Computed example of a mutant assay.
Amino acid sequence: MDIERFIADCIAANEETDAQAAVNEVLARAVSTPGAVLAALGEPDKAGLNVLLSSPTLTIFSATWTPQMNLMPHNHRMWANIGIYTGREDNIFWKRTSQGIKASGANALFVKDTVMLPEDAVHSVTNPLQRFTGGIHIYGGDFFDTRRSQWNPETLEEEPSDGAKIREVFQRENERLGLHKKA
């Protein structure tokens, strides 16, 4: 996998009429050869976000999850495509109701799988495995400079979130496992 070519292909696809679907095609091609992605990005050994591109119109990063890592319900406020190149990612989807959020579905992503999340999606993420998971995440906007929401995993109360708060979650996970590398 040529990372620079992948990024260029995603940027070009993001100019298409149905940008999310076009970008997902590029992502699906990439994760269809997971060994090539692993060779390009490396075997995951900590929780982290390896940012490949951050712009006002597109953010691309490799997210790596520690064994049995959980991320509370959260939204993105932009479309998102996720493709798994090692491990597994389980998603619970949530719907807003007059009483808050309620679980409304689930999806398990295995190696080579992709998913397209709409702009209004709320989901929580779990790596159910006893090994690391790696996925490429692509967002139709500036993921790190967008104010979003997350929900307390116990009370499901809505709280503010942004890229810095998500990075803190990954850092705490590394500390929990005694992996003191920067996330």
Rank of each mutant, 00 (worst) to 15 (best):
M1A: 14
M1V: 14
M1G: 13
D2P: 02
I3K: 06
I3W: 02
I3G: 03
F6M: 10
A8W: 03
A8H: 09
D9Y: 03
C10K: 00
I11G: 05
A13Y: 02
N14V: 10
E15F: 07
E15I: 05
E16H: 13
A19Y: 05
A21T: 14
N24S: 14
E25C: 14
V26Y: 03
L27Q: 01
A28I: 08
A30Q: 11
A30W: 07
V31A: 06
S32W: 01
T33M: 13
P34E: 08
A36D: 14
V37A: 08
L38T: 07
A40Q: 04
L41A: 08
V51G: 00
V51E: 09
L53V: 09
S55M: 08
L58N: 03
T59I: 10
I60R: 00
I60H: 00
W65A: 04
W65M: 11
T66M: 12
P73F: 02
H76P: 02
A80T: 12
N81V: 15
I82A: 08
G83Y: 00
G83K: 00
G83Q: 01
I84S: 01
I84G: 02
G87F: 02
G87P: 02
G87A: 07
G87K: 02
R88L: 08
E89M: 14
I92Q: 05
F93D: 04
K95C: 12
R96C: 09
R96E: 15
Q99G: 12
K102T: 14
A103P: 04
S104T: 09
S104Y: 03
G105Q: 04
G105L: 06
G105W: 02
N107W: 09
L109Q: 00
L109F: 06
L109R: 02
L109S: 01
T114Y: 02
V115A: 11
L117E: 14
L117K: 05
E119A: 13
E119M: 13
D120M: 08
A121C: 13
S124L: 05
S124R: 00
T126G: 05
N127G: 04
P128C: 05
L129M: 13
L129T: 11
R131Y: 10
T133R: 01
G134W: 01
G135S: 12
G135Q: 03
I136L: 11
I138Y: 00
Y139F: 14
F143T: 03
F144Q: 03
T146S: 10
N152T: 11
N152P: 10
E154P: 00
T155G: 08
L156N: 04
E159I: 10
E159S: 13
P160K: 06
P160L: 11
D162A: 10
D162N: 15
G163D: 08
G163P: 06
A164F: 10
K165G: 14
I166Y: 12
R167D: 13
E168I: 11
V169Q: 09
F170L: 15
E173Q: 12
E175N: 13
R176A: 14
R176D: 12
L177K: 04
L179A: 07
L179V: 15
L179G: 00
H180F: 15
K181P: 00
